[in-house]
Design a protein around this nucleic acid. Structure first.
Lengths: 205, 205
DNA sequence: GTCTATATACAGATAGAC
DNA sequence: GTCTATCTGTATATAGAC
């Protein structure tokens, strides 16, 4: 009889279930919010018992943090090769990328906006989102500055202020996607085009 | 001829307590949200028992509706006499009024934004807010149209689109008041001025 | 690791005395 | 109208068998 050595004792032993729990939690929290997703729902969706969830995670709060981190994993913006474009088209492209990002991550973005408005949720996660946001704004600022320096943009543009205004306007437009407004006679897409037009109208010499 | 309604024909009751409950509920719901204000909190603040609240209102949901209506009571925008200003300054004034309104009703506006993002809350109340919003947008639209027709604004302005863009930009800026952004190098007030400048820069001939 | 069964807490809501 | 006491449901979390 051979002594049984449990090769599976530590490292890569089935994160299968833990992973399923995390996925389900991530989806449900994003779609329905923290308050409206009891552990029982996560348990049902992940096809495990509630007790098992709390064996893997110390508490619901703990699960929430872990799930939120996972939600943020795909949060990056690939700006690609902006260098080949002139500054005006760089601005347009950045605006489009931002809009696409929000569209692609609709549910989780809405959820995060909700968290930020109420200033709830783990601070480290929120600050992570803040960094991404700041990075994007910095990109806009530098592009405007660059265009000003090489004379393609007006000499009196204010890179910081103009970038911030473009970004907040963008936020306002995209917010409309989360709020149904039956009186609106414009579409977010139409407004997006108009934003790009007016922004360039202001920036270009 | 209109029949007068005798207000005193209804019982000589003191709506004192009911009113206190409504006030407390209104404040707590606005500040902490529906989920985070149990009836026990409303009861404590209003100095009554939970049971009494449910004697006055059929359910928590019912209380919520009533409280929300009260929250919306001061929701109107007094545009004053716009007629004395030229169209450019009318736009500026409208933007300022909107900003002031949001500032004056910070907590309840944030709460309503939260409700609308999550599309929860009584439909009739939400649509009431939507009407106010649409009305304000219509005011902007007409002002721009007017300015175009009398030649003070460019002939190629698009009243509907330009008004909508100004309004969504405004929303984006004011949203920042609800979200703390430690990396920001601009203030909402600064952005507001910049929005007015760029909007007029685009509109004026 | 995974389960069933249970503990504990607290929410909204009811019953009934006063 | 207002209270105390209680019901009922559901949430998070724990105990302990397998």
């Amino acid at each position: 009889m051979v002594a049984e050595v449990d090769v599976n004792e530590v490292p890569h032993q089935r994160p299968r279930t833990r992973d399923r729990i995390l996925s389900s939690a991530s989806r449900l929290f994003s779609q329905n919010g923290y308050e409206h997703t009891p552990l029982s729902h996560v348990a049902r969706e992940a096809e495990v018992s509630k007790a098992l969830i709390l064996w893997h995670f110390d508490s619901k709060e703990d699960l929430f943090r872990a799930a939120l981190s996972r939600t943020l994993e795909p949060y990056y913006i690939d700006v690609g090769d902006l260098g080949t474009l002139d500054e005006g088209n760089q601005i347009k492209k950045l605006v489009d990328l931002y809009a696409k990002f929000v569209r692609d991550n609709r549910y989780s973005v809405r959820f995060l906006v909700d968290l930020m408005i109420r200033d709830s949720g783990p601070a480290e996660v929120l600050s992570q989102v803040g960094e991404l946001y700041a990075l994007f704004r910095e990109l806009l600022t530098q592009t405007i500055e660059c265009g000003r320096n090489n004379g393609r943009f007006r000499h009196d543009v204010n890179p910081t202020l103009d970038a911030a205004l473009i970004l907040t306007s963008l936020d306002g437009i995209l917010m409309e996607k989360f709020i149904k407004d039956e009186h609106s006679q414009t579409t977010p897409e139409g407004l997006l085009e108009h934003l790009k037009d007016t922004a360039l109208h202001r920036l270009l010499s």
